[in-house]
């Protein structure tokens, strides 16, 4: 079964994929996006990330996005899981899985969901660098302009 979850623990991607895959025999395409913590950000070496979040608003947004994606793209089901708290290099921090009858709508839906999560989920990313500095990540200007319209 698809779901929405905000997790302080590591995400079991394969477990989630298997769960969604086994939820319907109508599934003909299953597309996955995995957002992973990378070592270099804007030319600096990252040590770790911290995600702050507003639980009620973040959860409401992820549920709305999942529901709208299913309706908009005619999906069979979808799962969205966002990690919060501390995350190290290589950790999976955003998992989006969509299941549909055909691949075309699944590819489109995954991209749309990831964009919406970045714009609409009340989650804030802080990067800690290996040189001891840190910064709160600013959203892409285009995301911000779209959100405040």
């Amino acid at each position: 079964m698809g779901k929405v979850h905000i997790s302080e623990s590591p995400i079991d991607a394969w477990g989630e994929i298997t769960s969604l895959l086994q939820s319907s025999r109508r599934i003909g395409a299953l597309v996955t996006f995995m957002g992973v913590v990378r070592e270099i950000s804007e030319g600096k070496e990252v040590e770790r990330l911290f995600y702050d979040h507003y639980p009620e608003m973040a959860s409401n947004a992820l549920n709305r996005i999942r529901k709208e994606a299913i309706s908009r793209f005619g999906l069979i089901d979808a799962t969205i899981i966002h990690r919060v708290g501390e995350a190290g290099i290589g950790d999976l921090v955003l998992l989006v899985i969509v299941a549909s009858e055909h691949r075309s709508e699944a590819f489109k839906a995954v991209e749309w969901i990831v964009d919406e999560v970045k714009k609409e989920a009340a989650i804030w990313k802080k990067e800690y660098f290996k040189d001891g500095e840190y910064r709160w990540v600013e959203p892409e200007r285009s995301d911000l302009d779209e959100r405040i319209e």
Binding site: G35, Y51, H53, Y54, M57, A58, H82, V93, L94, V114, V117, K118, K119, E120, A121, A122, I123, W124, K125, W136, V137, E138, P139, D143, L144, R147
Partner: peptide
Amino acid sequence: SIKDLDVDVGEDDIVAIFPAFSGG
């Protein structure tokens, strides 16, 4: 989310103040 700052708030209300989202 709210844009109208003239709305009244009081007992049991929860107000949140935050920067633009940057998850993902």
